[in-house]
Write a protein that binds this DNA or RNA. Structure first.
Lengths: 160, 160
DNA sequence: AGAAGCAAGACTCATTTGGTCGCATATTGT
DNA sequence: ACAATATGCGACCAAATGAGTCTTGCTTCT
């Protein structure tokens, strides 16, 4: 069905939450703009343990920095403008390929009988490109300027 | 992992096969450019029974016409230029939504707590648009003119 | 009549997802 | 020092999905 896993969803939501935190930092935190896994989970009604694991993978991937101990938690490792949705999805769901033909080694399971991998690889690249252009910062809705900006940047014309 | 199911893969391969058949029709067939499920399955080493079911769904969706009996088989219901990859995928895999937030009724499973559905819906629309622009005819590689034509049509710039 | 082919549903099996539990380790406040 | 608060990590489990098979029946051509 060509869909993101819930984990990736949760990851994006968490990153968005942290990006918002970073905008109004409270000085009492070891890391600026940090929040604990439990706090984020509560905010979005996500199973806390599950989110914890997701944030750990994100931290391992270098997208988040973590800090243990009281008042610890996670914070964005980079500016929200410098983290793409693609990185997040890739860190959580692994390398994404639109078709089973395209594997990491570039070999096709169908042992050469697959005849459609070339055109689909291009679609794949386009989607990758699309998600790379979408940044965490774009997920935050600003009342003044519409969040469409990232996608409308000449790359893709959006139908209807 | 954001990937197509194998069924959709098989479906696209079969459609491509039929599109090629339609180019050089043999007069002995009840439908011009027809091929049996078994013939296609043999050509690509796909499990015959599985492909049969896929072709049936495709026929029910109106993308193929079927003809039972000896020398029967399937043929494209329309010209290969008028069938998009999107229709095929949608017929086989069902409506595709990039995130679990976006359902058929537009309601979010997370009961309003999901904050990222709007930007993702736009990505979703872009992918839909992308796949709609890719036609079956584009899957056939012509030695003379490159199959890139459809994707390079100003819609998306392909990275690397 | 019989072979070739489609139509359709039930059913099995493996993989993936979503989620939980428990324990270890690190940090901080008192 | 010690308890409270957090992350880090691995094992585990159940439900859903995906891939593929089997069986039975129907249609058309020879």
């Amino acid at each position: 069905m060509l869909r993101l896993t819930k984990k990736a969803d949760y990851g994006l939501m968490a990153l968005k939450y942290l990006a918002e935190q970073a905008q109004c930092p409270s000085a009492s935190q070891p890391i600026s703009g940090a929040a604990s896994a439990k706090a984020i989970a509560d905010a979005y009604h996500i199973p806390p343990q599950l989110l914890a694991k997701i944030l750990q993978t994100l931290a391992k991937a270098g997208l988040l920095v973590s800090h243990a101990g009281t008042n610890g938690g996670y914070a964005l490792a980079r500016d929200a403008h410098d983290i793409s949705a693609f990185e997040v999805i890739r860190a959580i769901d692994g390398p994404l390929f639109i078709t089973s033909c395209i594997t990491i080694h570039g070999t096709c399971d169908l042992a050469g009988h697959c005849t459609i991998k070339e055109p689909l690889r291009k679609v794949n690249d386009s989607i990758t490109d699309l998600l790379s252009k979408l940044r965490i910062a774009d997920l935050i809705e600003h009342a003044d300027h519409p969040p469409d900006a990232a996608l409308a940047g000449g790359l893709v014309t959006i139908a209807r």
